[in-house]
Amino acid sequence: MFVKVAERSRVAEVRRLAVQSSLAQGFGEQDAGRSAIVATELATNLIKHANGGEIVIGSFDDADGQGLELLAVDKGPGIADLHKALTDGHSTSGTPGTGLGAIRRNANAFAVISWVGRGTAVLARLKPDGQAATKANYLISGLCAPYPGETECGDGWAVSTLPATIGILMADGSGHGPEAHKAARRSIEIFRERAGWTVEPLAQAIDRALGATRGAAIAVAEIDPGGGRVNFVGIGNISAALLDQGLVRRMVSNNGTAGHLAPRIRAFQYPFRGPPTVILHSDGLSARWDLSEYPGLIAAHPSLIAAVLYRDFRRGRDDASIVVVRRHSACPPAS
């Protein structure tokens, strides 16, 4: 859920939607109250310090646990001194200066990244009190924004986690609207039904299943830590990248449209040496990004990577989706 925040009246709407989402996820009254505080502070900060921005309300299920995810992104002046900004009492707007500090105290996982003159992205993840510890060893972040004016997104993403591997799918249904949505959803159904299949036969199965739809661009990646490689198949215009030891390696897709014209479905292998991060996104985001232009982002929480690329590279005239998956050991501890 994406909420533009350009005036103070939107703060109450963000708070209401965050509480509604937390309650739908099984939060109790006290934990929903924490969600209200965090949502209010995030939205208020956008108005006070950035002349507006956008809040993304979603969920998470990974090494951080399960619960409510709140993201705030802006293109404001940025934060010159993050350490000071996180200290209660510090303010640049004449207010009590409890915004980021209150967010960090009430969130179970918190991360922020900012560049002077280039804006800020803030992540807050909240989970219900008493939730059991997770055994997951990966972090997942995905955003899916529909074509302007549409209620259904013609893109879709999914992740399957097995003891030995992590599978990732991105699907971009041809066009936009309900028919594109159906193609993306059908791709996800096949991906989930065949969890554990190697990427090439899995892509072939999706290709066959999409014959009754308008088709889609798809990409399937499998992170294989034991083999030290990412296995990858792409059909059509899905952008894919492997982040490893501070470097970005683009992964290659085959031409075509799954379900209609895919003359060659071939898998490629990409070795890695450190804990890997995989990025897949639809062509609703420009692929002309360069993480070296964003100091610190390559090592940041996957949700911040997804949020910043969405903020700066969404084309605005198409559905737009991105998913970022990282082996948990590659992510710095959330504060």
Rank of each mutant, 00 (worst) to 15 (best):
T92E: 10
E69K: 05
A171P: 06
D81V: 04
A158D: 12
L139T: 05
G99F: 00
A132F: 02
N51L: 07
A145T: 14
H176C: 06
G119S: 07
P148F: 08
R105F: 10
I166D: 06
P77Y: 00
I103W: 03
G65F: 08
A107Y: 12
S91T: 10
L68R: 00
Q66T: 13
F110C: 08
G156R: 05
V112H: 08
S141P: 06
G101Y: 01
T134M: 10
D61R: 06
C153D: 07
H176S: 13
V122G: 02
D129T: 15
G142M: 10
I140L: 13
D155F: 10
S114I: 07
D172M: 03
K84H: 03
L162H: 10
G175W: 03
A183C: 08
S187M: 03
L86D: 03
L100N: 05
D155R: 03
Q66R: 11
E54K: 05
G130Q: 02
A63Q: 02
R105Y: 12
P148S: 11
M170E: 14
R185N: 13
S187E: 07
Y138L: 12
K182F: 11
S114W: 09
D74M: 11
R125C: 08
L169V: 09
A132L: 09
V116S: 00
T134V: 13
S187C: 12
G65E: 03
A107P: 01
D172G: 09
S174V: 15
K127R: 11
H83K: 12
G173S: 03
W115I: 01
R185Y: 06
L143W: 15
E179S: 15
S59A: 15
E54T: 15
I113C: 01
I168Q: 02
G156K: 02
A72W: 07
A133K: 14
I166Q: 07
G119W: 11
G89P: 00
G175C: 08
T151F: 09
A85T: 01
A63N: 00
G175V: 09
G67V: 14
T92N: 06
G101P: 02
L70E: 02
C153L: 01
A50L: 08
C144S: 15
H90Q: 09
G177M: 06
G149K: 11
E54C: 02
L68P: 01
K135H: 12
V73L: 14
I166E: 07
A63C: 07
G167D: 15
L169C: 09
A111V: 11
P146H: 09
P163L: 01
P96R: 12
S93A: 13
Q131L: 15
V159H: 05
N106Q: 06
G156T: 08
